[in-house]
Design a protein around this nucleic acid. Structure first.
Lengths: 189, 189
DNA sequence: GGATCCATGTAACGTGTTACATGATTCT
DNA sequence: AGAATCATGTAACACGTTACATGGATCC
């Protein structure tokens, strides 16, 4: 049982899903690929933490809709209240931004623009996500809360952080141009 | 040459450092351990991207202070302007928060408290870091900018994001208590 | 007296990514 | 006509972490 396995249980606690759905959903919070997820799902099933319902399809492989068992729910809660590991973050952009002051203006500006582009695209994506969530909630107001809550709070969080990053970029651009220590007097506001 | 290697060059571009220093510094932006860093430094040295100055010590192993060569600086710039990989984030806390609505109030509150604790500790750490940077800048105002700029902008960014997370926690606590979809009308403000 | 910091390095292991494999349907 | 989406799965490889290894100085 590694962290990703618990993540799968976490997603499945909100609604039954296929491995394919899990892959796309979890990727927003925990970078991974289907190659890592499918074997873990088999293990979770062998351990009776999840069960599957087979949906027969033609043209594509049959769809396996997984849902938590009672044993799985117990495991989820025990993980939830156990100690939480420190986050692992590996962001190449950050590594680049760290040495931006040693780069010429052209290279520096190119990087900032690239980053701002990414932020804007992400913000757009978050807005779409919020719209999608609200439609989903209107369509079935009775059992939507569980499946919608997690996505909603995470989307709001991502949106706020990304908007902050955009402001931060402008600030970095401004103080980059001062080639002395006066930037230390300027706070990010 | 993997991403971490470039990260080491990025840090070394601001000031010469030992592998030990690099390990502690890079960890704020890119999770890694000395076991991964030392072999990469040897490779970078073999490729003549960095050179070392040996500082003899007693009791501890001799200190190896690495600095960029011209070849290393060229490599750094070519990496800087090349395409940037998407960030990799694996945060167990986020996985837990995703399913918080499926958990009982006690477990939910415990998690939120734990997260807020972490945020507060991190904020304290960032403030200390800012103070340390300002002292460093006052001590040698002439060559400090290069080594200080990166740390300063990253610390400011981390601080802002963590303060935002703290507000977010309060917001989540508030809407968690509403056991229906009305939370969708509430924005994070 | 034990923990932490400094300071380097290697080996075994676990995890994650890329590539391989298949194939119908839908969008551009 | 080609790319993307849906949908599963395995194998080889790259990468990262933990543990092993050493040892003096300093803090609590």
């Amino acid at each position: 049982m590694n962290k990703l396995s618990y993540g799968l249980l976490s997603l499945l606690s909100t609604e039954p899903m296929s491995g394919y759905d899990l892959t796309t959903k979890i990727n927003k919070f925990w970078r991974s690929t289907h190659s890592a997820i499918y074997p873990l799902l088999s293990e979770l099933e062998e351990g009776n933490y999840i069960e599957l319902t087979l949906i027969e399809q033609t043209g594509k492989p049959d769809k396996k809709i997984y849902h938590l068992t009672d044993k799985g729910k117990e495991l989820l809660r025990s993980w939830f209240i156990s100690e939480t590991a420190d986050e692992v973050c590996r962001d190449e952009m950050t590594l680049k931004l760290y040495c931006i002051n040693c780069m010429d203006e052209e290279a520096a500006e190119t990087l900032l623009k690239e980053y701002e582009d990414r932020c804007n695209k992400r913000i757009e994506m978050y807005h779409k996500n919020l719209a999608r969530i609200k439609v989903l909630a209107q369509e079935n107001p009775d059992n939507a809360p569980a499946s919608v809550f997690g996505s909603y709070i995470m989307t709001q969080r991502g949106l706020q952080k990304t908007e902050l990053d955009l402001k931060w970029c402008e600030w970095v651009r401004r103080i980059y141009k001062k080639k002395n220590l006066s930037f230390l007097k300027e706070d990010l506001r």
